Simulated assay, not measured.
Amino acid sequence: MNLLGDAIAWIFSGDPGAGLAPVPIALLQHLFYTFVSVVIAAVIAVPLGWLIGHTGKGRDIAVAISGAARAIPSFGLLILLFLLLGVLRTAEAAVITFVLLAIPSILAGAYTGFEAIDRKVIDAARSMGMTQWQILWRVEVPLGLTLLIAGLRSATLQVVATVTIAAFINLGGLGQYILAGIPLRRFDIVLGGALLVAALALVLDGAFALLQRVSVPAGIRAAQSEHRSGPKRTAAPRTAAPARA
Rank of each mutant, 00 (worst) to 15 (best):
N2A: 14
G5E: 09
G5I: 05
A7E: 03
I11H: 07
F12S: 13
D15V: 11
D15C: 00
P16H: 09
G19V: 07
L20R: 08
L20C: 04
A21R: 12
V23K: 13
I25W: 11
Q29G: 02
L31E: 01
F32Y: 14
F32K: 13
V39H: 00
V46T: 14
G49F: 05
L51T: 11
G53M: 05
R59H: 03
I61L: 15
A62Y: 10
A64H: 02
A68Q: 06
A68V: 15
A69H: 01
A69F: 14
A71V: 12
I72C: 08
P73F: 14
G76S: 15
I79E: 02
L80R: 01
L84C: 07
R89L: 15
E92D: 15
A94Y: 09
I96L: 10
T97W: 07
A108D: 10
G109V: 10
T112K: 12
F114W: 07
E115P: 00
A116P: 00
A116M: 07
A116I: 05
K120N: 15
A125G: 15
R126Y: 04
M128C: 12
M130I: 03
T131F: 07
V141R: 13
V141K: 08
L143R: 01
L143N: 11
L145E: 03
L145P: 06
L145M: 14
L148Y: 08
L148R: 06
I149H: 04
I149A: 05
I149R: 02
R153N: 12
A155C: 05
A155K: 03
T156V: 07
V160Y: 00
V160R: 03
T164F: 09
T164R: 01
T164G: 12
T164N: 10
N170T: 15
N170I: 08
G172D: 09
G173M: 08
G175W: 09
G175Y: 11
Y177N: 05
L179H: 12
L184M: 13
L184N: 14
D188N: 07
D188Y: 08
V190G: 02
G193N: 04
A199Y: 05
L200D: 04
L200I: 13
A201P: 06
L202K: 12
V203K: 04
L204P: 03
D205E: 13
D205M: 05
F208S: 06
L210H: 09
A222E: 14
A223F: 11
R228Y: 13
S229K: 14
S229L: 14
A236W: 02
A240M: 09
A243S: 14
